[in-house]
Design a protein around this nucleic acid. Sequence first.
DNA 1: CTGTTAGCGCTTTCAT
DNA 2: ATGAAAGCGCTAACAG
Lengths: 332, 332
Amino acid sequence: MGSRQDIGFAAVARLAGVSPGTVSNALNRPEKVAAATRARILAAIEELDFVPNRAASALRLGTSRLIGLVVPEITNPFYAAIASAVTEEAARLGYVVALCVSHDDADRELAWFDTLAEQRAAGVLVVPRGADRDRLRRLRMVGARLVLVDRVTEPEEGCSVAVDDVAGGRIAVEHLVTSGIRDLVIVNGDPEIPQCRDRSRGAYEAAAAAGVAIRELVLPEMTTAAGAAAGRALAQAPPRGVFCANDLIAVGVVRSLVDAGVRVPDDVTVVGYGDLEVAELARVPLTTVEQPKDRVGRAAVDALVAELTGGDAHEHKASVFPPRLIVRRSAP
Amino acid sequence: MGSRQDIGFAAVARLAGVSPGTVSNALNRPEKVAAATRARILAAIEELDFVPNRAASALRLGTSRLIGLVVPEITNPFYAAIASAVTEEAARLGYVVALCVSHDDADRELAWFDTLAEQRAAGVLVVPRGADRDRLRRLRMVGARLVLVDRVTEPEEGCSVAVDDVAGGRIAVEHLVTSGIRDLVIVNGDPEIPQCRDRSRGAYEAAAAAGVAIRELVLPEMTTAAGAAAGRALAQAPPRGVFCANDLIAVGVVRSLVDAGVRVPDDVTVVGYGDLEVAELARVPLTTVEQPKDRVGRAAVDALVAELTGGDAHEHKASVFPPRLIVRRSAP
DNA sequence: CTGTTAGCGCTTTCAT
DNA sequence: ATGAAAGCGCTAACAG
């Protein structure tokens, strides 16, 4: 009658002839338990096909092993690559990733924060769309940690992991001007989007440094269709070089140019951004700026877990990774 | 001194002048609580910025609001689209989705099952790679429900949601033979993979029905590179029609063919499979078989939740959605 | 090194 | 319609 339980650590404990507390220790702090005892406990677990209940430990500890990943779209290959790296690294460190798609909508993003707060997520990785300071209140309330992805922050706001888009814009345009091109157009997305602003800023810097004039086209969307429209416009009076703020735009631009009889790269050279799969597969394989998506995803998880385990001593840090130019046919 | 708690339902209850049990009812079974009481409770929740703790309810209920989604690769656009639809529908029904990437590896898949069992996931959607019957033991043990995605099962095994790949292969080849082509090659992946087997079977059926001979090339991988290799081989003695088991293969085949001076579609017409984004963006826009990814994802969640809420009365069901031919330039 | 014990916050009878 | 109370399975003191 010492125990009347039949489930959980109690059942294991009984079979192994120990107490539930010792089972917990055997699993979570093996060094506090004699090897022989631990072996008996492990055998009992095996025997019973016992599966520990994380909900109970989450309740007890006040925090779970769940990490929220909030991305604008998972069908965007850039975020898919980030998500892949994130789940991989999270799994390695014993965390589970909750996939949250904001569809570029600030309210939906907010709703996810609330949901994650209810789940007592240990932390959240977010590619922010609307997340201003006080919308994060609920998350803060439950002690969740936050790491911003693909956006640079002031360190006092929390950790962040991003790619240096100013550098990306710069190397793209440097590549163009180095080939002797003195007549440039940048086809950009909405300058309200930080990434677009940064890429464009880098492009202007490089152009200025080379003493080259640059013209900018702003698109309502960063899609192939919008790029194709821009390409048709450009085909009227083609510049020698075009830098597109992402690969989808570039694919559209190239297509329209080629359809209009403008040769790429002979008449016009084009540089894209992002190194999506289409860059390699497109009609004219695209020279583009590659972002180290794997490193970003991994670093984001590492930063979060460091904050989670570091406790008081943790210092926020903004990690910025360098992009890299991949030279293919569209701009040799 | 009636209560000494300061957190959770107890705090809300105190502020609203009710008991914790009533707070629970107000939230979960509003009809059992007087409207005025409920209003007071809601106000108290607002006032305190209270966030309910799902870990506690998961412990109490023995099951969480977590759905596991196990996919081979999230960077594969097909699975990314499924994941997008799944998170969307799950959120609508009040569930959170844990993203689990198996990297096509049966052991990793198994590890995810264990992890999800520990989390007391309510259910799991899996695009199976190794999942045989008894590897699901741990999940069954904790009462998790299972829905197979992109694979058809016997109804007694559980629910499943898939696309009819036999029909897909059939309509692809029907399109080719209808254009008068009597000389066909199918470029397939590993026939161990059910999807490949089915697509090929449908292709043979359609060819046989039209009295057309068909030749099959089996690739070690379903990638653009493998497709390109196949394309080089085909360029030696090009058939009039080619059906590829996925779009990546098709893109590779087309590229090699065009590079070898074979015109697509004038000399050879090519049909792909999957309607990935590259199909539209490729050098020669691809005629391909589209799979209704959104419907699959939504139906999978719906089936799971039906099983979760239906209880005893639930009957397993195998849903199969029809694919659809999208005609583009590669096979007009 | 191991046992005992007191909850974590929520849900759900069973009374009232 | 509401309150009281008993746990769900686990962890972390604290004792021994």
